[in-house]
Write a protein that binds this DNA or RNA. Structure first.
Lengths: 128, 128
DNA sequence: CTGTATCCGCCTGGATACTG
DNA sequence: CAGTATCCAGGCGGATACAG
């Protein structure tokens, strides 16, 4: 009789699965840089401002492990390594574009809301 | 002449803006719980498994500050507080559904890729 | 019922130095 | 050129206790 209150757990949460893949700091930026085609390591490093070697490598390794990026080491001197999106990785690109669109349409409203909220809550008791 | 290598920075990255809003651990779960309509604090707490008071409150405050959730405190004894999505918050729900769909379609491939990767890289030198 | 306050471990990510 | 290794600070999130 009583209305059900369905419980959701974070483990069975599809959103979390996706976010755990793409939400680390540089992931989307790296994938976006690869959406234009095959890129070499140093090329990525130059295109993505302020990314460190450690973070670029770490992000690429994680993407490779998740099957979103393919690594191709060319045995030459000096060594060259190419990275590109896998078909699986490509399936995320449209979603990134939608995120971009959302940010374009609505992010100004978020900034507005934030400053409104902060003004209302940070006033150090100046009221008479 | 040389081909341009356009640089992207993380500050002007639209993806980051969106992810910074929704990627904290409980955010999407809370918004999803609110997508069914107005909910009270305790109701949310019961519906979302394993969320602590601190995390629920903190997530709600952040959502309120970003203008995605509206808080309505009803002056009664004992106090009652209702939360609901704002129109701005509602605009994110379709995107969550798409994330859910992506997870349904492709997450098994990610898990497969991970176990493949781990098998190839974790073998403790057993080769002859 | 709806919160606040405090303490604290862990993990992410940055800086730096070194290597095949 | 394309990494690896190490150290370290800061922040996120969990546990617990208390409050209007």
């Amino acid at each position: 009789m009583a209305e059900k209150e369905p419980r959701v757990s974070i483990e069975e949460c599809s959103y979390r699965k996706v976010l755990d893949i793409v939400s680390s700091k540089w992931t989307v930026l790296v994938m976006a840089a690869l959406s234009g085609g095959t890129r070499r390591y140093g090329e990525l490093r130059r295109r993505i401002a302020d990314i460190s070697q450690k973070m670029l490598t770490q992000t690429l390794r994680q993407l490779e492990r998740d099957g979103l990026v393919e690594r191709n080491a060319i045995p030459s001197v000096p060594p060259a390594v190419e990275y590109k999106l896998t078909p699986l990785g490509e399936t995320l690109i449209p979603h990134f574009r939608e995120m971009r669109q959302w940010a374009h349409d609505y992010y100004p409203l978020v900034e507005r809301a934030r400053s409104d909220y902060d003004r209302k809550h940070e006033m150090p008791a100046t009221m008479d």
